[in-house]
Design a protein around this nucleic acid. Structure first.
Lengths: 142, 142
DNA sequence: AATATTAGTGGGTAACTACCAACTATTGGC
DNA sequence: GCCAATAGTTGGTAGTTACCCACTAATATT
């Protein structure tokens, strides 16, 4: 029982299917092994890559609505992965920082991500994986 | 305002973003130019590629729930793109066939798809597009 | 003949994503 | 000092996707 050639021949179709399947696999393993959602992982990674930042800055970077950002950060706070202090220079803003636990959880999450990618990209050789990454990066315009 | 390197370095992340963006672009142009949804296009393509079939067969092929298939087919029927006749050999089944209008709409849709892919894959050379298609096809296990 | 299975239907839901409007507290521009 | 803009918050909605259950009509199994 095969899919129609018309769809298999459409790059967008196959690309989307693979993207969704891989993301789903990643999300499942991430929550199972670290308790993080994909967005939580993204937020932790943002804080680690760029250092402490205002809540809105993280949201803007990830393309997340401010209101959704609040709820996401609430989660990180009461799991003790990040702290929320008022920026003394501008008391409207927060200064969100990773805690030690946050950094440690992020490291475990990075390992899980690498692990899952090894699995989902298993049909490709190392050179092909690198090439795929370059190709999709060229297509990616945020 | 850039995305964190951790995410940009994750193939799954970029792949998913590109997949969703491309699919969204395709869906928008398809409905604008032909009135078809992506699933309707997929169903028409299935019928054209494999010939007349039972409703369930099309649904199985596309991985669509039978109940959703009914609603999708209802749409194709009352737009005159397909016909629904009982299979005389097994009167539980339908025999879904493309109408002339259905075939004609499908051809226009194929042109739109090719057109949109030219746009969304514009950052790649022809060789790169072919390679990308091969790579994602290797990753695609339905 | 009785029972199980299959094709198609109708109705409904749960999760997720992505929004939007309205509000408070604070700051910056004039 | 006054007004506009910004950071964060709360509450809510719309669309999509992917289901599930209960039902009928017809066929297959035994």
């Amino acid at each position: 029982m095969e899919l129609p050639p018309t769809l298999l021949g459409t790059t967008t179709f196959v690309l989307h299917k693979v993207g969704v399947a891989n993301r789903r696999a990643l999300a499942a393993r991430l929550t199972a092994d670290t308790g993080l959602s994909l967005w939580e992982f993204a937020a932790l990674a943002t804080l680690d890559d760029f250092g402490p930042a205002a809540q809105r800055e993280v949201g803007d970077r990830l393309g997340l609505d401010p209101s959704d950002m609040v709820r996401l950060m609430d989660g990180l706070m009461n799991e003790g992965l990040a702290t929320r202090e008022r920026d003394p220079a501008d008391r409207r803003r927060y200064r969100i920082s990773l805690t030690a636990a946050g950094r440690e959880t992020l490291e475990r999450a990075r390992a899980v991500v690498a692990d899952v990618e090894r699995e989902t990209l298993a049909p490709l050789t190392d050179a092909e994986r690198r090439h795929l990454h370059i190709l999709v990066t060229k297509l990616f315009s945020p």
